[in-house]
Computed example of a mutant assay.
Amino acid sequence: MITRIWEGRTKIEHSDIYTKIIMERDIPDYKKTEGFIKLTFLKRSDDEFTFFKLLTYWTSIKAITNFTGPNLEQAVAYKEDEKYLEDFPGNVTHFEIFAE
């Protein structure tokens, strides 16, 4: 099993709308992808930004390409994200899960 980790941030005033976008657009997109197992979405805020961290779990690296296409290291981003993310589009990291 592989974990794919993405991190991003929005200005604090965009936190609620970006959270809603994640819930309504992003999570359903992950769930319909072959090889997807589960996800954990985290967020925290300070006075200026909301920081998001996404951990998605996949059956294999090959399964991740069902979602990303051939460029595994670049975050999957939607055009609308440019309005909200400070670090658009960003990169991701992958880790093999060897114990739970």
Rank of each mutant, 00 (worst) to 15 (best):
K20A: 12
T68I: 04
I27E: 06
E7L: 09
I5V: 13
Y78G: 07
S15V: 00
D26G: 07
D47F: 06
R44M: 09
K38E: 10
G8D: 03
F41G: 01
D16S: 12
E80K: 04
L42V: 09
H94M: 03
F52C: 04
K62P: 01
I17M: 11
I5R: 13
T50V: 09
T3E: 12
H14C: 08
E100H: 08
E80M: 12
I64V: 14
S15N: 08
Y18I: 01
E80D: 12
Y57W: 04
A77C: 14
F49R: 10
Y78H: 13
L72H: 03
K79L: 07
V92Y: 04
Q74G: 05
I64W: 02
E73R: 12
Y84V: 03
F67W: 09
T33Y: 03
V92C: 05
V92M: 00
T65P: 00
H14R: 11
T19W: 07
E86Y: 06
D47N: 14
D81W: 04
P28Y: 05
D47A: 14
A99E: 15
V92T: 13
T59G: 03
T50L: 08
Y84R: 02
E73Y: 09
T56Y: 10
Y30W: 14
F51L: 11
S15I: 05
F98L: 12
N91G: 14
E48W: 02
K43V: 04
E82K: 15
I37K: 00
E100A: 06
N91I: 13
N66H: 13
I27C: 10
T33L: 05
E80L: 13
H14E: 10
I64E: 11
I64T: 10
T93V: 09
A75P: 03
E80V: 15
T56A: 07
R9K: 15
N66G: 11
L54K: 07
R9N: 09
T56S: 15
K31N: 06
D46T: 11
K79T: 06
R4V: 01
R9W: 05
I21A: 09
P70K: 11
W58K: 01
R4P: 02
L85F: 09
F49C: 11
A99F: 10
S45C: 04
A63L: 07
T10H: 04
K79Q: 08
F49E: 14
G69N: 02
W6D: 04
S45K: 12
K43R: 15
I2Q: 00
L85P: 00
I61N: 01
R25S: 11
A77T: 11
K11N: 12
E100L: 10
E13Q: 08
E86S: 11
I61A: 04
F98V: 15
L85R: 05
K62A: 14
L42A: 14
F49I: 11
S45F: 01
S60W: 08
W58D: 01
A63S: 15
K38T: 11
T10N: 02
E24Y: 00
K53V: 13
L72C: 03
W58T: 02
T65E: 12
E73T: 12
D87M: 00
R44D: 09
M23Q: 15
Y30Q: 04
T50A: 10
I17N: 07
Q74L: 08
F88K: 08
Y84T: 03
K79Y: 03
G8H: 06
I2D: 02
F98A: 06
I5E: 08
Y78T: 11
G69W: 06
